[in-house]
């Protein structure tokens, strides 16, 4: 699966994710892509290694006198269950996305936005918008422009636009000047996760701005 990915995350986004400065909205797209793409996972983990070197180089800060004992106490207080290794998620959504949806694709509470297109808004920290989109085979995604960067990752099916063809795991990063008109491939519906980071005021304007395009 991971070898079929053609459209990857740019290094600066992976670096922002590694340092912890990327917004929650974009971080969700990164976590979803990296779950499906070993190439970007390797890049991310190599950037994490710089963080490891930074930690190693930190000048030791004295810890509390009983710090070790207190930590051991915390450990014994924790349920043994935390020792279990995680179960690899099988299904359409990687585990990060599942935790926002409350399950896999069958748990999504879709709302129709017209022209057969359905969407579900996911709740993240203010100042960003994250949504799942489901576009019928062969249909065009509502034409839209956006302020700030937009990141879109395909989870099922495929779409095409000026940037090429995007299949499961592929991610498209578009800047605000890009006006794109993605069209879903024939076959199965195209499900994707889209995140936009925008100034806070955008959030208030969103319902009004979105109206002509999404008919909310």
């Amino acid at each position: 699966m991971t070898d079929t990915i053609r459209h990857h995350l740019p290094d600066d986004i992976l670096a922002a994710y590694s340092t912890g400065s990327l917004s929650e909205a974009f971080s969700l797209v990164v976590a979803t892509h990296v779950s499906l793409c070993d190439e970007c996972r390797a890049t991310l983990e190599s950037i994490d290694a710089v963080g490891g070197a930074v930690l190693e180089g930190c000048e030791a800060e004295p810890v509390a006198a009983e710090s070790f004992e207190a930590t051991m106490h915390r450990i014994t207080g924790q349920a043994a269950a935390t020792m279990d290794r995680p179960i690899q998620a099988a299904g359409l959504f990687p585990s990060a996305l599942r935790s926002y949806v409350g399950g896999d694709v069958d748990a999504v509470r879709w709302r129709s936005v017209g022209m057969g297109v359905r969407q579900a808004i996911l709740r993240t920290e203010p100042g960003a918008s994250v949504r799942l989109l489901c576009i019928p085979p062969g249909a065009a995604m509502p034409n839209h422009t956006h302020r700030g960067r937009e990141m879109t990752i395909v989870l099922q099916g495929a779409f095409r636009d000026e940037g090429g063809r995007f299949c499961r795991g592929d991610v498209e990063v578009a800047d605000d000047h890009v006006r794109h008109a993605p069209v879903a491939d024939a076959g199965e519906p195209c499900i994707c996760l889209a995140a936009t980071e925008a100034p806070l005021r955008f959030r208030d304007l969103l319902p009004r701005l979105a109206q002509p395009f999404f008919r909310i």
Partner: peptide
């Protein structure tokens, strides 16, 4: 930051 941190699926040697 009091924000959630979405993390990639863990990969591990069984």
């Amino acid at each position: 930051r009091r924000a959630r941190r979405p993390e990639p699926d863990e990969l591990y040697w069984g």
